[in-house]
């Protein structure tokens, strides 16, 4: 183990990779640089059967660097086929929420003001409502802060467990919220009533630091001291540095500290 040499971005990349562990033959849809490295790391190591796309309309084969073209294409997957994968449940997305609340709801639509005239308009809900009630969903938060981790999101885009339960069995039947990886910690949805819960701290961060960067009281998995996120193995570090991100784009998304 190269415990002392891995950067924070590299710890985050393996925490993202682990999100897809055991998923089998489904489409990993990572948003952001570090999740893209994580998904390809998972394919290169413990999850060779994962499906990945070229970011356009093809299933991509092989293992390749972020920001580059894949070595080969193995199938056609236009947007319409993505909806088939989503509704059939054969996809695990990792989205970047602008807000994520205590109740596991995510927002990428708009913030503040009233809905008819928001203070900040973002993308719109995109596919987040359908994703969260259809297939495994994880989140990536490149910068853990109280602006992201809020008590209540302004517009539910990604549906959390309580909101799904309120909508009924059709919304909960295929819901499968997995984990949240931030630059400080790993969280999941195992808190009371399906709320967010701290699972592990990345090496070099403290519970106090994560709590201060979170806009609500954090429950800790197991109730005691939080675990420590795992370090990349030597082989994982070699893959990240030499194969998946030789240009070091990960350090732009998560600067080392």
């Amino acid at each position: 183990m190269s415990v002392t040499t891995a950067t924070r971005a590299e710890v985050c990349a393996v925490a993202c990779a682990d999100a897809w562990r055991g998923d089998g033959e489904l489409l990993a849809s990572p948003f952001g640089t570090v999740p893209a490295i994580g998904a390809r790391l998972a394919r290169a190591t413990f999850a060779p059967e994962l499906l990945l796309t070229d970011g356009e309309a093809a299933f991509a084969g092989g293992v390749w660097a972020v920001g580059e073209e894949p070595p080969r294409r193995e199938g056609w997957v236009p947007f319409r086929a993505i909806f088939e994968l989503v509704w059939r449940g054969r996809r695990h997305v990792m989205m970047i929420p602008s807000q994520l609340d205590r109740h596991g709801n995510a927002n990428i639509s708009c913030i503040g003001g009233e809905y008819a005239r928001p203070k900040v308009q973002l993308l719109g809900v995109r596919g987040a409502p359908g994703n969260t009630v259809s297939h495994p969903t994880s989140y990536w938060v490149p910068r853990h802060s109280p602006r992201v981790f809020v008590e209540r999101v302004d517009m539910i885009s990604g549906v959390g467990p309580a909101a799904a339960a309120e909508a009924g069995p059709a919304a909960t039947r295929h819901m499968d919220l997995r984990r949240v990886v931030s630059d400080l910690a790993v969280l999941d949805f195992g808190g009371s009533g399906g709320t967010l819960r701290l699972v592990s701290l990345h090496p070099g961060t403290s519970l106090e630091q994560v709590q201060a960067a979170t806009g609500f009281e954090l429950e800790v998995a197991g109730g005691g001291e939080p675990a420590t996120s795992r370090m990349p193995s030597d082989e994982e570090l070699r893959l990240i540095r030499d194969v998946l991100d030789p240009r070091g784009l990960r350090e732009q998304e998560v600067p080392d500290r």
């Binding site: 987040a128 539910i156 799904a164």
Partner: peptide, 13 residues
């Protein structure tokens, strides 16, 4: 019919 949208802000707005 679809599941997409259930439980989300889309139903409220």
């Amino acid at each position: 019919p679809t599941r997409a949208g259930l439980g989300s802000g889309v139903m409220r707005t």
